[in-house]
């Protein structure tokens, strides 16, 4: 925690931060392009019009990305978030993340057709698998139980939007 260890000017630590600067600048440009396409519709009722705030935001994003870049070049570094189960000494596990994203998207694609009970069960089982669960049957049983409980509790009991999908009429 001493100042000496954190101080290293003229050297960029954590280069991925430069990507974040670029992303912020890109977002700024995106807003400006989008705003330029909005018809200028100011009136006495609305002297500011719909363009002013996006233009301001776009410029602010460009400005902040510049200042951020300056901060990074001067050796600044944002601290990664810690937590109960977070081990920051290990490198990011991209395989787990990829698998999680896959099962998440699978649920998004199938939820309307197969229904929440099936797609949700697969989501739970798949995510647990991605996170290192090797009790496949137990994972699936818990997934199906959760999906059934939430479907009956929320969709039937509380009238929340959850699709029955192909199980329509069976559930």
């Amino acid at each position: 925690m001493s100042d000496a260890t954190t101080r290293s000017p003229q050297r960029v630590r954590d280069r991925a931060q430069l990507g974040l600067c670029a992303a912020l600048a890109g977002l700024g440009v995106l807003i400006l392009v989008d705003a330029s396409r909005i018809g200028q519709a100011t009136s006495s009722n609305d002297p500011l019009g719909p363009r002013a705030v996006p233009l301001f935001l776009g410029v602010a994003l460009l400005l902040v990305s510049g200042l951020y870049l300056l901060d990074v070049l001067r050796g600044g570094r944002g601290e990664e978030e810690e937590g109960e189960d977070v081990d920051l000494d290990s490198r990011a596990d991209w395989r787990t993340l990829g698998l999680l994203a896959f099962f998440f998207l699978l649920n998004a694609v199938t939820i309307d057709r197969l229904g929440w009970v099936i797609s949700g069960s697969i989501l739970f089982w798949g995510s647990a698998f991605a996170l290192g669960n090797r009790h496949h049957i137990r994972g699936l049983v818990i997934g199906v139980a959760l999906a059934l409980v939430t479907f009956y509790g929320f969709a039937i009991g509380l009238g929340v939007n959850l699709p029955a999908g192909i199980l329509q009429g069976i559930l």
């Binding site: 998440f104 998004a108 949700g120 739970f124 959850l162």
Partner: peptide
């Protein structure tokens, strides 16, 4: 067990976002 915990968070997050 952590796999079940975080799988559960993903499960309930998906449900909540869809149901909105």
């Amino acid at each position: 067990p952590r796999p079940y915990l975080y799988a559960g968070i993903l499960f309930f997050a998906s449900m909540g976002a869809y149901a909105a």
